[in-house]
């Protein structure tokens, strides 16, 4: 991947260049935190289909891509929104058999990314032993059950996504990125990926992160494109910047649960028709009242 090169582009340019139909897409974020919503909306708008979406906890971004008919397969630890329920579009597709679901545990997924991140073909874990999760993964030749010093051990095949999508707090135009709060599975997933698109709340001048390189969560070595997008995780949260928008997540869940024409309309109106993510934000939150409330809610917790 290019080092020392300016990679600042629009979401449309980044997605057109690095996401291809049939790609294995590493999905950043977890649940209601730091999901790469702006980048996922762009993938949906460009209609890039037949995707395999991989990650640990896959939430709204996966559900939107499934609703748009763009997902052929998921590989993950879980698909849900905890208190806000299941992923309705994903669940319907899984139950109908229109997408393939490859179940892992979170650690099994993280182990596969860790193997990919250091360029080895597999990495062992002692999770999954004795369960149907392991049986399923052995059948797919993703896991192998081995003996090491007389003890059973599971080898997980490395997972190397074609492209990963993540949203971060700060990035410079070269792709050095800072994440605040937890990083879930994202750092190893990015290191394992052939390409990575980062959207960032804030773009800082080249060299400014160089004063404190230990603060850099992800090096430019792994980053293909950088997109500036404030509130790029909306309606999910960005630690220290803004809380998640509960009412907006509930609103999505309500239409996703209903499905049918109402849901199709929502997806068209709020994901496919807006030209840019900022247009979607303004549609859903006209005077930025909710965004300000999200920020002030976060400040009150710090």
């Amino acid at each position: 991947m290019a080092v020392g090169v300016h990679k600042l582009v629009t979401a449309a340019e980044a997605v057109a260049r690095f996401v291809t139909p049939g790609a294995v897409v590493g999905m950043g974020g977890q649940n209601i935190n730091r999901c790469p919503m702006a980048l996922v909306h762009e993938v949906a708008r460009q209609g890039l289909g037949d995707l395999a979406v991989v990650g640990c906890n896959l939430s709204v971004p996966l559900d939107i891509l499934v609703a748009c008919g763009l997902v052929a397969r998921t590989e993950h630890g879980s698909g849900n929104l905890e208190r806000y329920g299941t992923l309705f579009a994903w669940r319907r597709a899984a139950e109908a058999g229109s997408i393939e679901v490859r179940d892992h545990s979170h650690l099994a997924m993280a182990t596969r990314f860790a193997a990919g991140a250091i360029g080895v073909p597999f990495m062992p874990t002692r999770s999954l032993l004795g369960t149907d999760v392991l049986r399923g993964l052995i059948d797919l030749d993703i896991a192998r059950l081995m003996d090491f010093d007389g003890q059973p051990i599971v080898l997980m095949r490395a997972l190397t996504p074609d492209v990963s999508l993540i949203h971060v707090h700060q990035a410079d135009p070269l792709g050095n990125a800072v994440i605040e709060g937890v990083t879930s599975h994202e750092v190893d997933m990015v290191r394992a990926s052939r390409a990575t698109i980062i959207s960032a709340e804030e773009i800082v001048p080249p060299g400014s992160l160089g004063e404190r390189p230990e603060r850099v969560t992800i090096s430019e070595a792994y980053v293909s494109a950088v997109v500036h997008q404030p509130y790029g995780a909306y309606p999910t949260s960005a630690y220290r910047r803004y809380d998640f928008a509960e009412d907006e997540i509930k609103a999505y869940q309500a239409v996703a649960r209903a499905g049918g024409a109402e849901f199709d309309h929502w997806i068209r109106r709020y994901v496919l028709e807006p030209e840019r993510f900022d247009d979607y934000l303004d549609l859903r939150d006209p005077d930025a009242v909710r965004r300000l409330a999200m920020s002030s809610s976060m400040r009150s917790m710090l």
């Binding site: 640990c56 208190r83 605040e180 599975h185 998640f244 917790m301």
Partner: peptide, 26 residues
Amino acid sequence: ISVVDPRLMNGASRHGSLFEALGGLV
């Protein structure tokens, strides 16, 4: 309401990764 809720990140020893929590600790 979630394992990534900012209300859960308060006063922590460290904000790490899933690999660290489920691998490095569990």
